[in-house]
Amino acid sequence: MPTYSFKIQRFNPDKDKRSHYEDYQVDLETTDRVLDGLNEIKWRQDGTLTYRRSCAHGVCGSDAMRINGRNRLACKLLVKDLPGQVTIEPMLGFTVIKDLVVDLEPFFEKYRSIAPYLINDSAPPETERLQSPEDRARYDDGTKCILCAACTTSCPPFWANKEFVGPAAIVNAHRFIFDSRDQGADERLGVLNTRNGVWRCRTVFNCTDACPRDIEITRAIEDVKRTLLFGRL
């Protein structure tokens, strides 16, 4: 088993004034994930190392973190793809609670602000509401979102202004705005057509690069901007 060097940003509010880095050496299989490396360190070297994790295969969104300078899911990145040192830091832009755990409440608050649920006040039919495969395809990409916050915390305009609603909230608004069954587009477009809405996006593409679900986030944001400019769904 090869040995990997992990350099991890640590912060314990009970005793640290500011964060620092600690180095660890860990033996891993080449097929192991970065998360396996963190677990090895926590379980055999330092039980105080703190991070969130659950599904361990990229679908729950718990373990988004900054790995070698990019936001990734620790469970969806193999150590063999990181030659040399593995540097791990918490996502940028939120308060660090401890080590790699950040306060996600502001993230979910932005998510809730765009009314992330189907709005349709007409009485539903006895069977399903019909939707053609083409209409279904229009919003498919956004349905993949796992709310891991990797996109929002990689976004320079968000770093500069924490009031910016952020890419994740826009993607989830897009998911409903372009759903043929939904009637709440005006409400959501109203939220997004503000100073801290879509117009703060500078098309940096960091969000698209960061998304572990390969959602074309920048494209979704552009769709919303175009809809606001031309007033057509």
């Binding site: 349709n120 509401r129 019909l130 495969p133 919003y139």
Partner: peptide, 19 residues
């Protein structure tokens, strides 16, 4: 399942638009 669809669940669709 029909209730879930009415809640907005994005099921894959048949050519006629059913689940």
């Amino acid at each position: 399942i029909i209730e879930l669809e009415h809640m907005g669940l994005p099921f894959s669709r048949t050519p006629e638009g059913k689940i």
